[in-house]
Design a protein around this nucleic acid. Structure first.
Length: 854
RNA sequence: GCCGAAGUGGUGGAAUUGGUAGACACGUCGGUCUCAAAAACCGAUGGGCUUUGCCCGUGCCGGUUCGAUUCCGGCCUUCGGUACCA
């Protein structure tokens, strides 16, 4: 055994051993309980960052721990390989996206291997390979058959400079994130997935996901945004048509004194009377020019224009003027709103601005609303007034009654509205899965026959950066024959949103090489659902909602037998670090600052900012490679696990890293100094131990229990590691090392085995030095001996009136009376009890005694 | 505005079911070793005091309880999500 701990040498060696042993390959084995552990797969950007290190360190502890507990663990890794950065790199540097991506994967795979993560690399997949996306195309065809995929014209964010649509996240302050040009709304024919068909199930099943964080479930519920209400028809005066509105407040129907339509509403122009036509046109034009982002901002002034037309309130029969209003959105509800100024703040402001009548129809308890003097709308509860037959009803009950009335009269019906929109999956990009559809002049939109899949992405394309997707000018790709009539036809040139690939990769891992379909049903039935999914909270809605949707689609296609893909979800926090900036040069890297905390370039004093998420733009990043080089992967892993619990943000602290490195060095040295003592020793016999030897053995077993319970389900790795540190401190201080080598041996072996999931390389190395030929994982996870936990005496805290006044040691089996006696005899306790009357003595077994005096 | 999470020493954090607040680590201070330094090791470290011990202390105010970081009510602050959603 070497005197010095040399992480670089031992880590490389053990990684080779594991690889040779194929130690982490998972095989379907119905005789063993399975455990499917998954971390969200990375985009192959080229280098891993600290967020990855944290995510995968957390996952690896769980994977190794579950394996040691005897589970058949599936722990795969792959690449979310399609996406815009590859294409941007192609435009900027001329490298083909495929080569760029491959190179990045190669590099990142090496980085992950250097971390010693226990992946089953035989199951590795990259979503950009035709063997993967061909099955996605097949599922799309099936969705098309079921009406779950469809094409429609929709307004999308369009960057005229890049000639492509942008996802909402790619629009920053109304401008393109890449070229900083203003984003426009453009009407385009786009492919959608009908996720709204699953809105109810996606929402209702959130109640049955106890293993998910409440915050994520709430976000999903809000995103789906189901609201119960009514659709109501307001007949237009002098015509036989009607305007249909959606409302959740049908109880306020009698108070609807005007009507607001979205300027894009199909009836908007038709309703304009001759005298109003010009101003209506001008208003529609004006609103149309405002970007969507401003349109939905809070500071936008509420404006409208009168159409000149009236409709009729179906409850009161009153005449109601019809306005167009800039705050009414065409893509929610029906694009028309019944305006109830007394009970909706927006309508109230609008009514005051245009001097429209305010009619109170809900009176709150203990308050009398006066329409003349109201300063704001009353949106709370109350009793219905001015509502004819409904007067006096509590408004909640009124909702039901008004809905029933409308239905009976044929004027409306109860409806459910969702905030959730269908998922727009078309992208005018090259580096994605081609949408397998052909357009034929005679036959229209024709799906590519399943036997012709995959539609592969052509590789011989040119990237100019202009003219949009290179597929559009790739004749060899576009030109094809119609599968129906064999006449010349054109291929779809749009590709899928990359969220499509990440919606089912976790299913593919069960049988990644299966070539008869997307998944091998047997493998999926064995491995799925995922027992533990781990990733960043930034995916709380998008990816996690899409993945749930896709799983349900595949279930309904009889491809999988599960309803939900992720049983337990852990959303890990961000990795943060302080920022430093100079008034001259902006953000600074630590190496751009001198010892006196001044900028190396200009000498200005450096301002230290607060902890923020690590990002290159703010120069508060740590490069995992450098970290591993300096300290080793084990230290990097240990620090990210020790510094904070996984769901919280992690504050980077170089000194904390050094502390972890120091700890591993201490363990190494301690074992180095004593390993000859313990290598030949037997393991201890419980009964024969006394004093410090017995105490140490007790702590060994207490630590096993604590670490087991901390890891299992709780994921409190920080306290688990702290417990091992305490044990190491106790071993250091143990006076009986030479007298009790057997106790020392058990203690050392326990430390090494407990540390194994966290720092696997050094654990293997030390295990070997403790005289074992086989891996540290061979004996499985250590079990604690209940007998060793038993004590003869207990330390009990004595309180007087709830304040700690003393501590007494009592026999473990002492009864209430004996404990009470001992407590009252304590000299300090006596000072507080003497001369007072003891009212009550509370004894909490094994913990404390509280003497209540007065 | 609404929804969610959080607030504990100089710092990261611990206290699992209402039972010794501050485990573990970082930092700081003092010491040992050394020509010196680093490393390593040992000790101290919430604040205050009349220091065998006492008082105060978990964002603020109140409540329940023998006992509250933990439960309840009301506020304040920070972070995250989301929004003219009718």
């Amino acid at each position: 055994m070497q005197e010095r701990y040399n992480p670089a040498e031992i880590e490389q060696r053990w990684q080779q051993v594991w690889e040779k042993r194929q130690a982490y390959q998972a095989e379907t084995d119905s005789d063993r309980p399975k455990y499917y552990l998954l971390e969200m797969f990375p985009y192959p950007s080229g280098r891993i960052h600290m967020g990855h290190v944290r995510n995968y360190s957390i996952g690896d502890v769980v994977a190794r721990f579950k394996r040691l507990q005897g589970y058949n663990v599936l722990h795969p890794m792959g690449w979310d390989a399609f996406g815009m950065p590859a294409e941007n790199a192609a435009i900027q540097h001329g490298t083909h996206p495929a080569l760029w991506t491959e190179e990045n994967i190669r590099n990142m795979r090496l980085q992950l291997r250097r971390m010693g993560l226990s992946y089953d690399w035989n199951r590795e997949l990259a979503t950009c390979s035709p063997e993967y996306y061909r099955w996605e195309q097949l599922i799309f065809l099936k969705m098309l058959e079921k009406g779950l995929a469809y094409k429609k014209s929709a307004a999308v964010n369009w960057c005229p400079d890049c000639e492509t649509v942008l996802a909402n996240e790619q629009v920053e302050d109304g401008c393109c994130w890449r070229c900083d040009n203003a984003v426009e709304q453009k009407q385009l024919d786009q492919w959608f997935f009908r996720i709204t068909r699953y809105a109810d199930e996606l929402l209702d099943r959130t109640e049955q996901l106890p293993g998910w964080p409440e915050s994520v479930l709430t976000m999903q519920r809000n995103w789906i945004g189901r609201s119960h209400g009514c659709e109501i028809d307001f007949p237009v005066e002098g015509t036989d048509s009607a305007i249909r509105v959606f409302t959740t407040r049908q109880d306020t129907l009698a108070g609807a004194t005007f009507m607001s339509l979205a300027p894009e509403h199909p009836m908007a122009l038709k309703l304009a009377t001759a005298g109003q036509r010009d101003s209506v046109r001008a208003f529609i034009d004006k609103v149309g020019k405002v970007e969507k982002i401003d349109r939905t901002s809070e500071d936008l002034e509420k404006e409208g224009v009168f159409t000149g037309s009236y409709c009729v309130n179906p409850l009161t029969g009153q005449q109601v003027p019809v306005f167009l209003a800039n705050f009414v959105l065409m893509d929610y509800g029906t694009g028309a709103v019944m305006a109830v100024p007394a009970h909706d703040q927006r309508d109230f402001e609008f009514a005051r601005k245009y001097q429209l009548p305010v009619q109170v129809v809900i009176q709150p308890e203990g308050e009398l609303l006066d329409p003349e003097r109201m300063q704001e709308a009353w949106t709370g509860e109350g009793r219905m007034v001015n509502s004819g037959p409904f007067d006096g009803l509590p408004n909640e009950e009124g909702k039901q009654r008004v809905a029933d009335f409308l239905k009976a009269e044929g004027r409306g019906e109860p409806t459910i509205n969702y905030r959730l929109r269908d998922w727009l999956v078309s992208r005018q990009r090259y580096w994605g899965t081609p949408i397998p559809v052909i357009y034929c002049a005679a036959c229209g939109t024709v799906p590519v026959p399943a036997e012709d899949l995959p539609v592969t992405l052509p590789t011989d394309v040119k990237f100019s950066g202009a003219g949009g997707s290179p597929l559009k000018s790739q004749a060899s790709f576009i030109e094809t024959d119609c599968p129906v009539c064999s006449q010349p036809a054109r291929r779809e040139t749009d590709t899928f949103d990359t969220f499509v690939e990440s919606s089912w990769y976790f299913l593919r891992y069960a049988s990644p090489h299966y070539d008869q379909g997307p998944v091998d049903r047997q493998a999926v039935d064995y491995w799925l659902p995922i027992d533990q999914y781990i990733g960043g909270v930034e995916h709380a809605v998008l990816h996690l909602l899409y993945a749930r949707f896709w799983t349900k689609v595949m279930r309904d296609l009889d491809m999988v037998g599960i309803d939900e893909p992720f049983t337990n979800l852990l959303t890990q926090g961000m990795v943060c670090m302080e920022t430093r900036s100079c008034p001259e040069h902006g953000w600074l890297y630590p190496e751009e600052i001198d010892a006196g905390n001044q900028c190396l370039k200009c000498g200005s004093p450096v301002t230290t900012g607060r902890n923020e998420k690590m990002s290159k733009s703010k120069k508060n990043v740590i490069d995992p490679d450098g970290l591993i080089q300096r300290y080793g992967a084990d230290t990097a892993r240990l620090f990210t696990l020790f510094a904070s619990p996984p769901e919280k943000d992690l504050e980077w602290n170089e000194q904390g890293v050094e502390g972890c490195s120091r700890f591993l060095n201490r363990v190494w040295r301690l074992i180095y100094e004593h390993h000859e003592l313990v290598v030949g020793a037997a393991l201890p016999e419980e009964s024969s131990l006394q004093g410090p030897a017995r105490d140490l053995r007790q702590q060994v077993h207490k630590t096993i229990k604590k670490v087991t319970e901390d890891i299992d389900g709780r994921f409190h790795f920080n306290t688990a590691i702290a417990a091992v540190m305490e044990l190491v401190n106790a071993i250091s201080a143990f006076p009986g090392k030479t007298e009790h080598p057997e106790v020392l041996k058990e203690a050392f072996e326990t430390v090494v085995r407990l540390l194994n999931p966290f720092v696997p390389h050094v654990a293997e190395e030390l295990w070997q030095h403790l005289g074992h030929d086989q891996g540290v994982d061979t004996p499985g996870w250590p079990a604690w001996d209940e007998k060793a936990l038993e004590t003869e005496t207990l330390l009990m805290v004595v309180q007087v009136n709830g304040k700690v006044r003393g501590k007494v040691v009592v026999p473990a089996e002492a009864d209430r009376h004996v404990i009470e006696q001992a407590a009252l005899e304590d000299s300090n306790v006596r000072r507080y009890v003497e001369g007072k009357q003891v009212r009550k003595v509370i004894v909490v077994p094994g913990r404390l005694v509280n003497v209540v005096v007065s």
